[in-house]
Design a protein around this nucleic acid. Structure first.
Lengths: 181, 181
DNA sequence: ACCTGAACACCGTTCAAGT
DNA sequence: ACCTGAACACCGTTCAAGT
């Protein structure tokens, strides 16, 4: 009778695979994580993964989308906090997945899915930061460059180990209270 | 009679291999470049490379060292130019090898040679920028964070495509003329 | 000292075959 | 529709063997 057997399992199984990928990518690293390893963690055979995702880069994008969605949802809570605090929170939150910054840049060169996700991510970041800068009264001429610089600072802080004081100092240099006129 | 046959060839051959690696890494990308490809470009068999370098990561470091030495030597020419111009020149100069930024970050996680080179590179950058900031009269408290931010900005500009105006705007935001009191 | 041919373990991915 | 066993082409690296 059921035209599609277990119609809700499909999404659930995919989610399991993506969850396994997120964990392995962040703990072991993208390149060091074989499809076989992810498959084992998800309780399937390596080739089964290919029924759910096209290839390893699509799996990376799925993992990134999940991570981003969670982070954005949590970030919503601190909507009214100063930008520096929000950026600081993002850095702290994503430190766990710092490996992925370099991986995204490296893979973007030769995988169009990753490149497309990467572009969209930056567009989103730019838009979020720019609108908040506008709200804070930063003059329009400075907004674009400040938004770009903010993203670069966040990526740089993620990719390189920096102490708490240093991290705050860098972000305040970009978004600091002295920037509000 | 010669205890070591062709004593000067050793360095020359190594240089050929590293040159081939630099070219292939920048044109095709590090991951996409197989040892076989580098070997072919250098006119040797794949396994011959292993007589000169320990592994692919050591070859990457050799390539980075060559690139950095060349860039620093050329940069010496513009020692007296404003910092913004120097940074702009560096970005423009290294755009050809932009792929390597992400690769270094990605490989640093699991290769100690690459990690060590990466650390040294940042220490050098910090020192260079800090000393120039001091010369420009930037107060000591701001120097460290500004130096860090400069590196992050340069890396960000390299990793992401940005137009000339945008690139300059970002760098001026960090090092701009308005920063001199 | 220098270089090679042949092999090793492993990788992402495919595919014919099962249910 | 979903999953698998077995295979494919390729990878970085090793090693015994040559000169």
């Amino acid at each position: 009778m059921p035209r599609n057997r277990r119609p809700q399992d499909r999404g659930a199984k995919l989610a399991e695979i993506v969850d396994a990928a997120v964990t392995q990518f962040s703990e072991v690293g993208f390149e060091q994580t074989s499809m076989a390893r992810i498959a084992a963690a998800a309780g399937v055979t390596p080739n089964t993964i290919y029924w759910y995702v096209a290839d390893k880069d699509h799996l990376l994008v799925a993992a990134l989308e999940l991570l981003l969605a969670e982070a954005l949802s949590d970030l919503g809570t601190m909507d009214r906090e100063p930008l520096v605090e929000q950026a600081l929170w993002v850095v702290d939150r994503l430190r766990r997945h710092k490996t992925l910054v370099g991986v995204v840049h490296a893979r973007s060169e030769h995988s169009s899915v990753v490149a497309t996700w990467h572009d969209g991510f930056h567009a989103l970041m730019d838009e979020m930061v720019t609108s908040r800068l506008a709200r804070d009264g930063v003059p329009e001429r400075q907004r674009d460059a400040t938004a770009r610089l903010t993203t670069f600072a966040v990526e740089g802080l993620l990719a390189h180990p920096t102490g708490p004081g240093e991290t705050r100092a860098v972000l305040e240099l970009v978004l600091g209270p002295d920037r509000r006129p």
